[in-house]
């Protein structure tokens, strides 16, 4: 393909990605070093109250946001270097927590709390998703041909459901005396409140995520199971390999590229964990890195959005995903170079 034709074909798409992905990224990077604030001015305000002896007037000096001619708040942007990052990471509090050797105190700092949850979530759901995906794929493959279609249909439902709604539907099963909470209470013969402590909420979030992603892994693995080399399976049987050994030494190696693929996609997606926090309304117990940025961006009680802090936390989030992806990208690069040689 000539490079000119190539450019015309790829052009629009690249243009979109530069305009809406690369430029915003550069914007976030620069915003994170600046701080935009309303300009405040000191105003003398005289308040007078009528009384018997005449008027009692009080003059006091208050600070009010300065307004321009149209009545909008005047803002000023200043270069603050790494201060936004420092405000997000909060080193003094980290050091104080370490000095006290108190994990709990450490976990009161939003950023570290979010980081801890995001990483635990990502790393704990990954093996579960792979395991359940594989189990579902193997059992579908084992089922009669006639029921595979309907089973795949049902399996797809958790995957395509809107994440917020999926999380909500799980929440409604557990909230208050919801059906599953009642069931657990009856089974364990004790009182249970699923939304009263952090760990149960975290558990539900992870269960939800496994429920949501396992079908994807299952379908991918199931498709690959159709292409397992029957000859090598047969020779494995002749060599006396047990069912387990055949799975371990023939089928799993065949699936390996796809296991890597699912791992990659899952790392990307679960690092972005966010909808669960919204769906389970867990922000007072459990938060994630994306939610932290979202929270900075949303209007606070005074009607402000802390864009600068959001930028800093967004940059930190991004550094995290890049670190997580480095091993995978290195693999792709080696593979590419190998193919070229």
């Amino acid at each position: 393909m000539k490079s000119k034709t190539f450019a015309t074909f790829v052009g629009p798409s690249i243009f979109m990605m530069i305009l809406f992905i690369a430029l915003p990224l550069a914007g976030v990077l620069s915003q994170s070093f600046y701080l935009t604030q309303s300009v405040y001015e000191e105003v003398e305000v005289e308040t007078c109250t009528p009384s018997f002896t005449g008027q009692i007037c009080l003059t006091e000096i208050t600070t009010l946001p300065m307004l321009d001619k149209e009545g909008k708040k005047v803002t000023k942007t200043t270069f603050v270097g790494l201060r936004n990052y420092r405000n997000v990471i909060e080193f003094p509090r980290v050091i104080a927590a370490f000095a006290n050797k108190s994990w709990q105190q450490f976990m009161t700092i939003d950023f570290w709390k979010a980081l801890r949850f995001t990483l635990t979530f990502t790393l704990l759901t990954l093996p579960l998703v792979l395991l359940f995906g594989l189990l579902i794929a193997l059992t579908i493959n084992n089922a009669a041909k006639s029921i595979r279609g309907p089973v795949i249909f049902i399996s797809l439902l958790p995957m395509i459901i809107t994440p917020v709604i999926g999380a909500l539907s799980i929440r409604w099963l557990f909230i208050g005396d919801g059906i599953l909470t009642s069931f657990l209470e009856w089974w364990l013969v004790r009182d249970i409140a699923m939304f009263a402590q952090a760990w149960t909420i975290e558990l539900m979030m992870m269960l939800y995520r496994v429920w949501h992603v396992a079908p994807f892994a299952a379908i991918v693995f199931y498709a690959a199971l159709q292409t397992v080399n029957q000859d090598s399976l047969e020779s494995a049987i002749i060599d006396g390999a047990s069912r387990w050994e055949r799975l371990r030494y023939v089928i799993i190696p065949h699936l390996m590229p796809l296991i890597v693929f699912v791992t990659l996609i899952h790392l990307m997606d679960s690092y972005r964990v966010f909808e669960e926090v919204i769906g389970f309304s867990s922000q007072s117990y459990v938060i994630s890195l994306q939610w932290l940025t979202y929270d900075f961006l949303s209007l606070d009680m005074l009607g402000n959005r802390s864009i600068s802090r959001a930028s800093a936390s967004a940059m930190l989030t991004m550094i995290g995903i890049v670190i997580l992806l480095i091993p995978v990208l290195r693999g792709v690069w080696m593979d590419y170079k190998g193919r070229r040689l």
């Binding site: 915003p24 990224l25 890195l289 864009i307 989030t317």
Partner: peptide, 25 residues
């Protein structure tokens, strides 16, 4: 090849990072 790799990295970006870029603008 590089376009595809960069696209892959963009695919991994948390959406909140991008929204932070758009919102002030």
């Amino acid at each position: 090849f590089w376009i595809l790799i960069i696209a892959l990295i963009f695919r991994a970006l948390p959406h909140s990072v991008l929204v932070t870029g758009y919102l002030p603008f």
